[in-house]
Write a protein that binds this DNA or RNA. Structure first.
Lengths: 65, 65
DNA sequence: GCTGGTCACAATGACCTC
DNA sequence: AGAGGTCATTGTGACCAG
């Protein structure tokens, strides 16, 4: 854990966000955007996982202050 | 397409069923079993994909007649 | 402490042989 | 026609170096 891209996240979500947030994505969600993302399910839905990253405050560009 | 394990399925689902149906699985579903499995989302939820395989009539043992 | 880079590992699915 | 086998490809995440 630690602050990554503006939010406190685990290392795997840091890597996921680094890989996915910076490029245009065409992820398909199996549940119309209603996935519950946990450590056990995070691999399942990239769309909901990325949304959760943004919702948690992760940002592409580090905010100044 | 063709008959695989008792149902008409694509080749990828044939391979998936072969890999997963014969061993005890601990799949976690991101949407509490309500995933809509399509060609685009089938990678996302193994639990719902395997259930759909069984629902489609795929069986571990070939039925006689 | 946080960044990007690396790479072993595992799942997928197209293709193959029997 | 349908079974199992193979393996290139890809995403993941632990770990590394700056």
């Amino acid at each position: 854990m630690g602050r990554h891209f503006g939010a406190i996240t685990c290392d795997s979500c840091k890597s996921f966000f680094r890989r996915t947030a910076f490029v245009k994505q065409l992820f398909e969600c199996p549940s119309d955007g209603r996935c519950n993302i946990t450590a056990d399910t995070r691999k399942s839905c990239q769309k909901c996982r990325l949304k959760k990253c943004f919702d948690a405050g992760m940002r592409k560009v580090l905010r100044v202050n």
